[in-house]
Amino acid sequence: SQQIATAKDKYEWLVSRIVKNHNENWLSVSRKMQASPEYQDYVYLEGTQKAKKLFLQHIHRLK
Rank of each mutant, 00 (worst) to 15 (best):
S1C: 07
Q3R: 10
Q3H: 11
A5Y: 06
A5K: 14
T6S: 13
T6Q: 11
A7E: 02
A7W: 04
K8G: 02
K8W: 01
K8T: 10
D9C: 05
D9Y: 12
D9Q: 15
D9R: 13
D9W: 13
K10Q: 07
K10P: 01
E12W: 03
E12D: 04
E12L: 14
L14Y: 06
V15E: 00
S16T: 11
S16C: 11
S16Q: 14
S16R: 14
R17E: 11
R17Q: 15
R17W: 03
I18M: 12
I18N: 04
V19H: 00
V19T: 06
K20A: 08
K20Y: 01
K20T: 12
N21S: 12
N21M: 05
N21Y: 03
N21F: 14
H22D: 13
N23Y: 12
N23T: 12
W26D: 04
L27C: 13
L27A: 15
L27H: 15
L27T: 14
L27E: 15
L27D: 13
S28W: 06
V29C: 10
V29Y: 03
V29N: 02
S30T: 08
S30W: 11
M33L: 12
M33Y: 05
M33N: 04
A35L: 09
A35T: 13
A35C: 10
S36C: 15
S36D: 04
P37M: 07
P37N: 05
E38V: 09
E38W: 09
E38Q: 10
Y39C: 04
Y39H: 00
Y39P: 00
Q40S: 06
Q40H: 13
D41W: 07
D41H: 13
D41G: 08
Y42G: 01
Y42K: 04
Y42D: 01
V43Y: 04
V43I: 10
V43F: 00
V43S: 01
Y44M: 15
Y44K: 15
L45F: 08
G47F: 00
Q49F: 07
Q49R: 11
Q49D: 14
K50T: 08
K50M: 13
K50A: 15
A51K: 02
A51R: 01
K52I: 03
K53M: 14
K53W: 09
L56Y: 11
Q57P: 01
Q57I: 05
Q57R: 09
H58Q: 07
H58T: 06
I59E: 01
I59F: 01
I59M: 12
I59R: 05
H60G: 15
H60P: 00
H60C: 14
R61H: 12
L62W: 03
L62D: 00
K63C: 06
